[in-house]
Nucleic acid binder design. Structure first.
Lengths: 200, 200, 200, 200
DNA sequence: AATGAATGAGATTTCATTCAT
DNA sequence: CATGAATGAAATCTCATTCAT
């Protein structure tokens, strides 16, 4: 049989991306078969290859698009005019909002890095370091102008990112706290890590 | 052929555990084949089944032993007589030391939870929550007696654990900082998170 | 490689059914591997799974189709207008002809019942009992109207069926007797079992 | 560990024979593993090889012992002085009694002939034909002296044996009829097949 | 005579991928 | 662009058998 009426190639590709993202996040790249992705999408396994040359490319595209979208979103959201303290708060809020909306992308971009083959791995790693430079630069700016008292810029950066990303592990909508409340709490926790003076 | 002279069952089982741990940590449970584990251990794939009934059991045993050993190690290390501030420092040092020595166990115990089948999953989850109670109790004790100013006990607990565990991602022996230095830095970062009064 | 030009799915499935039937009859279900079926059919072992979900399903389909075809063939051949004596002769001839044409199906439908998993087993058993009702009903009709002198309807039924099926064990084309002769002999033997009056 | 107190080699061998008989009858030779036999017997798989050189030998011994015991039992039971009619009745009763006591042996001696390797197969076949000679000789004696009216000695023999053996398929202790009653019925059915004059 | 550990082959099934249609 | 059938490799696990202990 040929294409079903009402579905276009682009739609199928998008559905495949979504399903793959969901399944990779839930079970891991290696544990998800092309057939499983196909079944969930409602096509045959062979059809996937009309859209993605290999399984590896499918993962790679997901991760790369994610990282590029993230960086683009920050480029959009960035407010370089802000003082370090406000800039850090702005970043924390941006990061939490953005990452909770794409918890699956975030999850696999940390988990499945190791599933990427060499070239793909390097490219994603590079993008990730680029993003990590964002908070790091803010910390260093704040250290220089005295707004922050940073213990160690590198470790503090990693600590902040780890802390924020940890949220994707346990956050549930309709949990005890609203996203706004959680966001506010994390803003304060991060402020404490850099010993932002005005806090509390 | 039968057993090779000079090898015992316990030795083989231990070697299998070590190899599996290494490979699961490096490539993920689903991506590691029994053949690969066997090859690295120097036995035939079938021989694994003399020691572990299924691949799933092999993972499960690794995780369960890890969690139980961790809890036992803490039970040993715990010093309930310490005031909250010292108790928290003690916990941070314990956690870092213990987890860096077993970074592979820690890694897979977070990563491969999803690879566990239902019953196994529940048991490990339970043990993990039990461990998370350790810092949480210290935080609450400190909140009560005024040593700490805790923003939110639950989130602070998760934030501390996420922060500490993040280390296993980037830590390399012979890096810029020694383990002692890193430990000291984390002790201070954690102290800041709970706004421990005397710090800095 | 993909499908070879000139072969269709239905053809392959049919070839698989035939080969499996032959091999199961010759060596028994448990002793026949999917690889062996594949090799004889000229495909890879994996390709079987495009047509039958499991080995068990392959056996089950063979048995179920056999029993259903048998019942359908009888429904076609049945001549309810015949008097018991003629009806019994008609059944004996039908049974012999049908079963000799499908000696392999008959063989495995008796031998491999035990290889069927529960549900499959029950369904085949039910169909078999349905077929056994055919001679049984004739015997009872003959008992009632006095054409037959039946010793015990149930045991006589089973005895007749066992006697007839035994033939598949030793019958060889080009043996001492032609099929027509054998058929005639069995007709007379069965007549004797029910003490059909006019015989001899 | 060594031998458990209280078990001797001969006892283990006997237990193995019994268990193997049971399992072969239930699931078929090919479907029963040495480990399954061992487990049911309460020993390790390796221990079987102290008693039987191979799995094939285990089956072979069961079948050969069965056929030899059967022939010996008939040699014991045989009453050459009986007239054909009484001799046939005697044989039917002997066969039923003997075979119901060893339904598992009978079952596998028909079913697993094909699982025997060449030499073993020939030997068992020879013994089986020897036993089939028993009723055949009686039939021929009766045909000659006019006690029976045999349609075809060979087919009648096979028919009788098939009829009798069929019983092992459906016979259940505590069924509708007692063994004595069933025996009596079969005696009469067989008498009818050979058109024994005095019957009924 | 038994155990427990091993081998090497092979079981069923799944996989990523290809391609005629 | 999609299907359905195929490949060939590899997955987990089982098997008969062997042998040091």
């Amino acid at each position: 049989m040929a294409r079903r009426a009402g579905s276009t190639g682009a739609e199928t590709a998008e559905k495949l991306r979504n399903v793959a993202l969901e399944l990779f996040a839930r079970s891991g790249y290696a544990a998800v078969s092309m057939r499983a992705i196909a079944a969930e999408t409602g096509v045959q396994a062979g059809a996937i290859y009309n859209h993605f040359p290999t399984k590896q490319d499918l993962l790679n595209e997901l991760l790369q698009v994610h990282m590029e979208t993230l960086l683009a979103a920050w480029a959009e959201a960035e407010r370089p005019e802000l003082a370090p303290a406000e800039a850090l708060e702005h970043f924390v809020r941006f990061h939490i909002r953005y990452h909770l909306d794409r918890s699956r992308e975030v999850f696999i971009s940390y988990m499945e890095l190791r599933s990427l083959e060499n070239e793909n791995f390097s490219m994603i790693e590079r993008l990730r370091r680029q993003y990590e430079q964002v908070p790091r630069a803010i910390l260093e700016r704040g250290a220089k102008d005295g707004s922050f008292d940073i213990i160690d810029p590198q470790i503090s950066t990693m600590a902040i990112i780890a802390m924020l990303n940890g949220m994707t592990t346990w956050f549930r909508e309709n949990g005890r706290l609203s996203l706004d409340e959680i966001e506010a709490i994390y803003v304060r926790l991060v402020a404490r890590l850099v010993q932002q003076k005005k806090e509390d």
